[in-house]
Write a protein that binds this DNA or RNA. Structure first.
Lengths: 107, 107
DNA sequence: CCCGTGCGTTAGTCATAGCTTACCGTAAGC
DNA sequence: GCTTACGGTAAGCTATGACTAACGCACGGG
C-alpha cells in the first residue's frame, strides 16, 4: 500500500497537531513550533516525515521555510478510507442480515 | 481527541492487515493469524489494541473468539477525516486565490 | 472425566521512534 | 563583511511497542 507512510505519519499525536495547524493555512516552522510542547528541531523532523509521506509541501521564503498541506497526498488517504468504509459497511450489513435470517438464536 | 487511540491502532502495518481482513466479514483469531507472518499471540495482542480503540468488537463462539469491525468506531475516524479534509481544502483554495490576487510574483 | 483445541496473558528481548542538545549552512540588516 | 534570525542535520538517550516462548484457562468431544 502506497499510503502506509501517510498512516504512520498521522499516527503520532504531536505530528498530527502540526498537521492540523497547517489545515488553517501555510505556516513557517517557527510559527508551528511556537506553543507546541516540543522543540523546534523536533517540529522540523516531524515536517520531514510529513513531507516524505506526501502530506505537505515546502517552499523557501527568504530565510524562512513555509510548509503547506498537499491536497493530493491527503486525498489518497481519504480515497483509501472511503473504499474501506464502504467495504466494511457492506460486510457488516450482510453479516447482520445473515444473523437475522438464521434466527435470533444464531448459530 | 478521542480517536487518538484509533489512529495509533491503525498505524502499525500488521495491525492494519488484520483490520483489513476483518473488512471482509467476521473472523476468528486463528483464521486471521493464518497466512500472516506473525504468531497467533501477536494477532491476539493486535486485536486487543483494536478493541480498546473501539474499532472492533468480539464475541465468544464456543471455544473460538470471533472478531468483527465496529462501524461506530470506524465512523468516528471518518468523521474526523471529513472535517479535516474540508478545512484543508478550503484553506488551500483561499491561499491559492490570495497568491493569485497578489500577483504571480507573489509576496 | 480426561484430553485436545482455541485464545488470552505474562515475561522478556530487541528494534524503532521521538526528543533534546549542539552544530552548521544560508539569507537578510546594519 | 560581520552579525543575527531561521531552520535543517547529527549524535545520543530513553521510552515505547511489536514479537516470541511459555503458561493458564475454558469449552467441547470421546
Amino acid at each position: 500500500m502506497t499510503n502506509a507512510r501517510a498512516f504512520a505519519a498521522l499516527s503520532d499525536p504531536t505530528r498530527r497537531q502540526v498537521f492540523e495547524r497547517l489545515s488553517d493555512g501555510p505556516r513557517a516552522v517557527g510559527e508551528l513550533a511556537y506553543g507546541l510542547p516540543v522543540s523546534r528541531p523536533a517540529v522540523s523532523q516531524h515536517l520531514k516525515v510529513l513531507k516524505e509521506a506526501g502530506l505537505v509541501t515546502d517552499r523557501a521564503e527568504g530565510t524562512r521555510r513555509v510548509y503547506q498541506i498537499d491536497p493530493h497526498g491527503l486525498g489518497q488517504i481519504r480515497a483509501w478510507f472511503d473504499r474501506f468504509w464502504d467495504q466494511a459497511l457492506t460486510a457488516f450489513a450482510a453479516e447482520a442480515e445473515r444473523a437475522e435470517r438464521e434466527g435470533h438464536d444464531d448459530q
